[in-house]
């Protein structure tokens, strides 16, 4: 029969197995496991499952994976619209003219820009939306934990998801 102590002990299994409990809690788990056959069975079974997971058959990509990828990248490089534009010498000349115009305009802008006395503006991040962390997984967990309350009846603890998000940026199309 599982009681409150069993629930508490069940919550310690990962730390117990990884040897990261305080000596006091460890002794409490040890003591419980010697008297509670139900928790002992669960713990032993858990260890067997973990061993099997660690030996899980590993998948490999097909032998031509990298080759296929690189040919996709080649296609990408050759089909880039900018590349096509710059392949034409006429547009290249026009491009230089536009670039020169932009430089002049930008120079003027910096010169007259009262916000940035040093003539430096930060354009970083403009067009780079942040990669979203796998938040739906994190968000869904509370409701799922509630719905899938298992027979061990481990009490649901509030999860804190208010941490810093990834400082990674990407063009996510």
């Amino acid at each position: 029969m599982q009681n409150d102590e069993c629930i508490y002990i069940g919550e310690q299994f990962t730390d117990y197995q990884e040897n990261s409990l305080t000596s006091e809690t460890r002794a409490r788990v040890d003591a419980h496991l010697t008297v509670c056959s139900s928790c002992r069975d669960i713990y032993q079974e858990l260890n067997r499952v973990l061993d099997q997971l660690h030996e899980f058959p590993s998948l490999t990509t097909k032998p031509d994976f990298t080759q296929n990828l690189m040919s996709k990248i080649d296609d990408l490089n050759h089909q880039s619209p900018w590349q096509r534009v710059y392949q034409s010498s006429f547009t290249r000349v026009a491009g230089y003219a536009i670039a020169a115009g932009l430089i002049v305009a930008l120079g003027l802008n910096i010169w007259i820009d009262p916000i940035s006395p040093n003539g430096i503006r930060d354009y970083t991040g403009r067009e780079n939306p942040q990669i979203q962390p796998m938040e739906s997984i994190a968000d869904n967990v509370d409701s799922l934990l509630g719905n899938t309350a298992d027979s061990l009846k481990i009490p649901h603890r509030a999860t804190n998801s208010g941490t810093s998000s990834l400082q990674l940026v990407s063009d996510t199309q």
């Binding site: 299994f13 990962t14 994190a138 027979s151 061990l152 999860t159 804190n160 998801s161 941490t163 990834l166």
Partner: peptide, 27 residues
Amino acid sequence: STILDIPMGTVKSRVNRARLKLQETLS
């Protein structure tokens, strides 16, 4: 913790809970 954007403590307790759940499903 970084990939899922959840605190380390939550990762640990979720690992524990997921393992118990897996073991329960297996049994």
